[in-house]
Nucleic acid binder design. Structure first.
Lengths: 155, 155
DNA sequence: TGTGAAAATGTCAGGGC
DNA sequence: GCCCTGACATTTTCACA
């Protein structure tokens, strides 16, 4: 996992994060090299798993997904069996965009995208009927100030 | 914003979300059409803003960004002036991957990716010195169970 | 919508720093 | 070792039926 990246690699990654549809030639120009080395580096970065995949970023509103919730979950269960079921429930549901296991008071946080509040309730009811959960707090997003996958790449 | 999408559009969007590096030909095969109509639809979806951009998804760990925090923020300030400064502070910082204004008790939630706990503290100190904040709770992610930008596209 | 042809781009071999 | 030049294969792009 500890991949060593030089300045050129980082420039390439930055360019790809900003716009992955750019041609190899444009990227090469930006990083100040020619196509071949850039191409070889990209291939290596992909193989090393630094570049996971390439995706189109869609507008949620245009798809009718108007509601975004952050869900804070507390549970009393900490057995392997329960965890496995909970994990599966999360991975199976496409409306769960993010799920993290946390340190401290709150055990899990989810980010859920759905059509509206009703759709969230359907999701919520389905989830708590599938796995036992002690306490749930849903935070409703009123405004998406910022939303990016572009990671900060140090120099 | 209310774009009407037919079944073919949705298939195209699903394919692009899954892997945007696919050739037009492959996508056409998947949706059961030939290249030209698929190409025209993609262009329209881009123009309509349904497809926002295309990006490479990187592995945060490979970049040395090992710590992920969710930050819950309460503030006593609700004036336009304060909000503007706060917004700017968030947009300016690359380590803030997500920021939402919330309904209810907690005013804002952030998702922050940094190298380690020390780097988070640097970020935190800088933020609270820049804008007045009433109360902050940081939730540390121990495990990223799921993390995707792929939106659920209904049939 | 589909065919097909021109332009652009991705891919890779060979040689040089 | 890594890089560049250049030639070939593939793909994108678009006019036209």
């Amino acid at each position: 996992m500890a991949v060593s990246l030089d300045a050129t690699d980082r420039k390439i990654l930055r360019a790809l994060q900003a716009d992955a549809s750019q041609s190899l030639e444009e990227i090469a120009r930006q990083v100040g090299a020619s196509k071949t080395p850039v191409w070889n580096r990209i291939r290596k970065l992909r193989e090393a798993g630094v570049i996971r995949r390439q995706t189109a970023v869609l507008d949620p509103e245009a798809l009718g997904l108007e509601a975004c919730f952050f869900v804070l979950i507390r549970t009393s269960e900490h057995e392997a069996e329960w965890q496995k079921a909970f994990l599966k429930a999360l991975l199976d549901r496409d409306e769960v965009l993010e799920a993290h296991r946390l340190a401290g008071d709150i055990d899990y946080i989810l980010k859920v995208r759905v059509e509206n509040a009703r759709a969230y309730d359907v999701f919520y009811q389905a989830l708590i009927s599938e796995v036992r959960i002690y306490n749930v707090t849903a935070l409703l997003s009123m405004e998406e100030i910022k939303s990016t996958f572009a990671l900060p790449i140090p120099d």
